[in-house]
Design a protein around this nucleic acid. Structure first.
Length: 682
DNA sequence: GCACCTCGAGTTCA
DNA sequence: CTCGAGGTGC
C-alpha cells in the first residue's frame, strides 16, 4: 500500500468503526458483534503504528488499557468532592433560594456590586442530572493523567485506565489548554447500551443491572480495562474545580462559562443546560425536562440548579456535606430499586425482634430512604429476600417505605440468606419463637426480662402515653446514662438542679422539662393504664378497662372472670391484665409512681351524647385541630375513633392529602365528610 | 372453625 | 402504614 491508499484505508476504518459505535449507542438491536468491532480497531491500530502521521490521539483505537489490575489505588482528591443536596418540590426549591438570599444579605464581606446584583435576583444555571457515577479527571499539559471515583468525597479510587476506554473523555485536550485542569462529570451508560448489556447478560445467565448508575459503577470497577471498554460508557462533564493560570481563571467566573470552555477543550457537553436570570422560570424548565425525560438517550434523575456566579457560589459555603449554592431537584419516583446492604434486628418494648432492611440510600416519592421494616421472618420468606438483593421499594401511603418485591434476576450468587439471630443483639439474651403464654408465634422474642432495649423502649412508651413531649429518645437515654433515672417513676422526682449542669442543657431547657413533667403528673386512668405497657393493652383496651372499673384499685383487685366479662376483652387480654397485677415488681412500680405524686384522675362517666354509637375514621391532615384533639372531641361526645375503614364506619373525616383510607371508604360507600362538615357537627 | 373487624406493636423521614 | 393476632359472631 502506498501512503495515499493507507490514508484512505485509515479513513474508511475510522468511519466504519464510528458507524458501528453509533449504531451500538442508538439502535435497539445489535448491529455488529464485538469481534467485528475489535478486529477493525486492531487493523486500524497496526496501520497507525506504522504510519504515525495518521495518528489521532483521541481516536478510539488509541484507547488500549494497560494490564488488568490487582486492585485500584486509593487516591486522595486534591479538592474534596462534595455531594449535592436534594429538593423534591417547588416549595422546597424556593425555600432553598430564600435561605441563600437571606444568608447573602448578611454577608458583609461581599462586594457592593455583588450585593446590588442580588436585588434583581441571582442568575442560575440549570443542567440535567445524569444517572451515573461522579468522577474527577485531571489533565496536565493537555494530557489526561488521572481519573478518580468520588469515593467518600475525600478519597477515591484511581480508575484512569478504565476511564481511558470512554471515548467521550478526551485523552488530549484541544489547544489552547491550561497547564492543569480538573474536570468533574458523570460517567454513565446510555439506555440502549444498558438494554443490550442486560439482554446479553440475561442470555448468559449473568446478573442484570438495575440502572445506569449501577452499570456504570460496575463497569468502571472492572479490573481489566478491556472488559471496561466493552461496556461502551459515556461521559458528561459539568464542573471545573481547578484550573491553573489567571487568564484561565477569568474564563470560569460563571458556571455557564465553564460549560463553554469544556466544550472548547473538546468535551461533549450536554446541550439541555440553560441559564436563567430569574428563579421563577426554573420550575417550568424542570417540568419541560420531565416531559422529554423518557425520550432522552440517557437516564436522568433530576435537574441540578447552580448559582451561576462562582463568587456568590463560594461565599455561600457548605452545610455538612453539601455546598449551599447548588441543589438537585429530584423527580420523585413512585417506585425505585435499591440494594439491601444488610438486615439488622430491632428489639421492641415487648422483646419482639424485628428485622430491618438497610438500603443503599435512594430517593422515593419525595424523600431519601435508607431503611424499611421487614416485619418478621415470614415476610422475608415470602419475599425470598437475601442480603445483597436488588429490591423494588415504594412508599406506603406516601410515607413509610416498603419492600415490594425482590428482583431475583439481578442476583449475582453472592447474596446471603438471612438467619434470625440466636442471641438478642442488645443483651445477648436467649431468643425464642414464642409469644405470650408459650404459644408459638410468627415473631421471635428476646426472653431476657431485663433486656436493656426492652427497658428503653418501655420508657419511651411510658413518656409518650403520659404525653411528656419534652422527653425524647435521646434525652431519656442521656438521663439513664447519667444515672438520673433507673425507671420511669424516677422521672417525677427530677429536679431542675439535676438537669441544668449536664452538657448541652441549661437553665432554660431544664426548666422546660421540669415544668412539662409537673404538668403531666395528673393523668386520666385510661392513659395511665396504657402507659404501664401491659401486654395486649393499648389505648383502646385501656379505655375499656378504665370505663368499666373506674379506679385503679378496683381493676387491680378484680378477678380474671370479671375482666373477661368486659366487651371486647377476651381470654388472652384478661389473663395478661390479671397477671400484671399479681406481679410484685409491677405493684411496686405503681406504688412508686403514686408516691412520686402521680395523680390518677377519676373517670367521668361518658354521657350519652350525640355521637354515641358513631364510629369515625380520621384521615389526612386537619387544618383547624390536630388529629389527637379531634379524637378527644369525638370520644368526649360519646363516639369512637377507629384506625381503619370498614362497613361499620359511620363517617370518614377527610383532611388534606388523605390516602388509601379515603379510597377504601369510597369503595365501601361510607359517608365521607370534609373538615368543615365535621366541625359543624360538633 | 372461619370470616371479619379491631387493636397492638413496630415503623420512616424531615 | 402494615402485619399479626385477639375478639366476636355465625
Amino acid at each position: 500500500m502506498n501512503k495515499f491508499e493507507v490514508e484512505k484505508r485509515v479513513q474508511k476504518l475510522r468511519s466504519e468503526i464510528a458507524r458501528l459505535r453509533d449504531a451500538y449507542h442508538t439502535k435497539d438491536s445489535p448491529v455488529a458483534t464485538d469481534d467485528v468491532y475489535d478486529s477493525l480497531n486492531r487493523e486500524l491500530k497496526s496501520l497507525v503504528e506504522k504510519y504515525p502521521e495518521f495518528d489521532d490521539s483521541n481516536a478510539p483505537e488509541n484507547r488500549i488499557g494497560g494490564k488488568p489490575l490487582d486492585k485500584f489505588e486509593k487516591v486522595k482528591h486534591e479538592i474534596k468532592m462534595f455531594s449535592i443536596g436534594n429538593v423534591f418540590s417547588e416549595e422546597e426549591f424556593f425555600a432553598w433560594e430564600k435561605r441563600n438570599l437571606k444568608l447573602l444579605n448578611l454577608r458583609s464581606d461581599l462586594s457592593k456590586s455583588l450585593r446590588s446584583g442580588l436585588v434583581g435576583g441571582i442568575d442560575y444555571f440549570c443542567e440535567l442530572k445524569l444517572d451515573g457515577l461522579a468522577v474527577s479527571l485531571i489533565y496536565e499539559n493537555g494530557k489526561f493523567v488521572r481519573g478518580v471515583t468520588r469515593g467518600d468525597g475525600e478519597i477515591g479510587e484511581d480508575i484512569t485506565s478504565n476511564l481511558k476506554m470512554i471515548e467521550s473523555i478526551p485523552l488530549v485536550l484541544k489547544s489552547p489548554y491550561p497547564e492543569k485542569i480538573e474536570v468533574r462529570g458523570e460517567a454513565f451508560m446510555r439506555k440502549n447500551v444498558l438494554k443490550k448489556l442486560n439482554e446479553r447478560n440475561k442470555k448468559e445467565d449473568k446478573p442484570l443491572f438495575a440502572n445506569s448508575r449501577n452499570a456504570a459503577a460496575g463497569s468502571l470497577r472492572q479490573l481489566d480495562p478491556k472488559l471496561a471498554k466493552k461496556r461502551h460508557l459515556d461521559f458528561s462533564p459539568y464542573e471545573i474545580t481547578q484550573i491553573k493560570g489567571d487568564n484561565w481563571q477569568k474564563q470560569i467566573e460563571k458556571h455557564s462559562q465553564k460549560h463553554k470552555l469544556l466544550s472548547k477543550l473538546s468535551f461533549i457537553v450536554d446541550e439541555h443546560s440553560k441559564k436563567f436570570s430569574s428563579s421563577k422560570d426554573i420550575p417550568n424548565f424542570i417540568n419541560e425536562i420531565s416531559k422529554i425525560r423518557e425520550n432522552l438517550p440517557f437516564g436522568i434523575d433530576g435537574v441540578v440548579i447552580n448559582i451561576d456566579d462562582t463568587k456568590i457560589f463560594e461565599s455561600l459555603g457548605v452545610t455538612g456535606k453539601d455546598p449551599r449554592g447548588i441543589i438537585a431537584f429530584k423527580y420523585p419516583a413512585e417506585k425505585t430499586t435499591t440494594i439491601v446492604k444488610d438486615i439488622k434486628i430491632n428489639v421492641g418494648r415487648t422483646g419482639v425482634l424485628t428485622p430491618l432492611a438497610i438500603f443503599e440510600p435512594t430517593a422515593v416519592a419525595g424523600s431519601t430512604v435508607s431503611k424499611a421494616t421487614l416485619h418478621n421472618m415470614d415476610q422475608i420468606g415470602r419475599l425470598d429476600l437475601r442480603i445483597g438483593d436488588t429490591v423494588v421499594i415504594e412508599k406506603a401511603g406516601d410515607v413509610i417505605p416498603k419492600v415490594v418485591e425482590v428482583l431475583t434476576r439481578m442476583r449475582t450468587g453472592k447474596e446471603k440468606k438471612f438467619k434470625m439471630v440466636e442471641k438478642c443483639p442488645v443483651c445477648g439474651g436467649k431468643v425464642e419463637k414464642k409469644g405470650i403464654s408459650n404459644k408459638s408465634s410468627v415473631a421471635y422474642y428476646c426472653t431476657n426480662p431485663k433486656c436493656f432495649a426492652k427497658d428503653e423502649r418501655s420508657l419511651e412508651h411510658f413518656v409518650s402515653a403520659f404525653e411528656i413531649y419534652e422527653l425524647g429518645t435521646k434525652i431519656l437515654r442521656r438521663f439513664k446514662d447519667e444515672g438520673l433515672i433507673t425507671d420511669a417513676a424516677d422521672i417525677f422526682t427530677l429536679m431542675k438542679e439535676d438537669i441544668a449542669p449536664l452538657k448541652r442543657f441549661g437553665e432554660k431547657s431544664a426548666e422546660n422539662i421540669i415544668k412539662e413533667i409537673e404538668l403531666k403528673k395528673k393523668i386520666p386512668l385510661s392513659k395511665f393504664l396504657c402507659a404501664l405497657g401491659i401486654l395486649h393493652v393499648g389505648e383502646e383496651t385501656a379505655r375499656d378497662l378504665a370505663v368499666n372499673f373506674g379506679t385503679l384499685d378496683k381493676l387491680a383487685k378484680a378477678g380474671i372472670e370479671k375482666i373477661n366479662e368486659i366487651e371486647n376483652i377476651g381470654p388472652a387480654v384478661s389473663e395478661s391484665v390479671y397477671d400484671y397485677f399479681r406481679n410484685k415488681n409491677n405493684l411496686l412500680f405503681i406504688k412508686k409512681l403514686l408516691k412520686n405524686d402521680v395523680v390518677i384522675e377519676k373517670v367521668g362517666k361518658i354521657k350519652e351524647n350525640k355521637f354515641t354509637g358513631l364510629i369515625f375514621v380520621l384521615t389526612g391532615t386537619l387544618s383547624q385541630m390536630s388529629r389527637e384533639l379531634a379524637k378527644e372531641k369525638i370520644i368526649s361526645l360519646g363516639g369512637k375513633v377507629s384506625s381503619s375503614v370498614s362497613k361499620n364506619t359511620s363517617y370518614v373525616v377527610a383532611g388534606e392529602e388523605s390516602g388509601s383510607k379515603l379510597k377504601n371508604a369510597q369503595k365501601l360507600g361510607i359517608k365521607i365528610i370534609n373538615e368543615k362538615e365535621f366541625l359543624d357537627m360538633l
